[in-house]
Computed example of a mutant assay.
Amino acid sequence: MVDRIKHNAPVLVIGLGRFGAATAGQLDRLGREVLAIDTDAALVGKWADRVTHTVQADARSIEALRQLGAEDFSIAVVAVGSSIEASVLITAN
């Protein structure tokens, strides 16, 4: 049986470009806890007061993701590159 993901589960957003920032902002407005990660310090600073948590990190590094606790998230939005269709990943832990 597949575990259901809680409707208020925290969301990991990787990338704070247009799609990632819009997604993180909307999730925050909906009352969701958000951890947003980007390599760009300016974007991380811009969103620091807009979402629950922001971190400057390279999400291509498995070690960085482990240190941030990425494996504890049931929902992740990977908003990097140009394919929006490839940006949503939902897993059941």
Rank of each mutant, 00 (worst) to 15 (best):
V2G: 00
V2D: 00
D3H: 10
R4T: 07
R4W: 11
K6T: 11
K6S: 11
K6G: 12
H7G: 08
H7M: 05
N8Y: 10
A9M: 12
L12V: 09
L12A: 03
L12R: 02
V13T: 11
L16Q: 13
T23I: 10
T23W: 05
T23M: 14
Q26R: 12
L27Q: 03
G31M: 11
G31V: 07
E33H: 10
E33S: 04
V34Q: 05
V34P: 09
I37C: 04
I37P: 08
D38A: 09
D38C: 10
A41Y: 02
A41L: 00
L43W: 04
V44P: 14
V44H: 13
G45P: 02
G45A: 06
K46V: 04
K46N: 15
D49N: 14
H53L: 09
T54N: 08
V55C: 07
V55M: 08
V55H: 02
D58N: 14
R60D: 14
I62L: 11
I62W: 04
E63D: 10
E63C: 12
A64S: 12
L65R: 14
R66D: 09
R66T: 14
Q67L: 13
Q67V: 13
G69S: 11
S74K: 14
V77P: 01
V78K: 06
V78L: 15
V78C: 10
A79Q: 01
A79R: 00
S82Q: 03
S82C: 01
S83F: 01
S87W: 01
S87I: 00
I90E: 00
T91Q: 03
T91S: 02
A92F: 00
A92W: 00
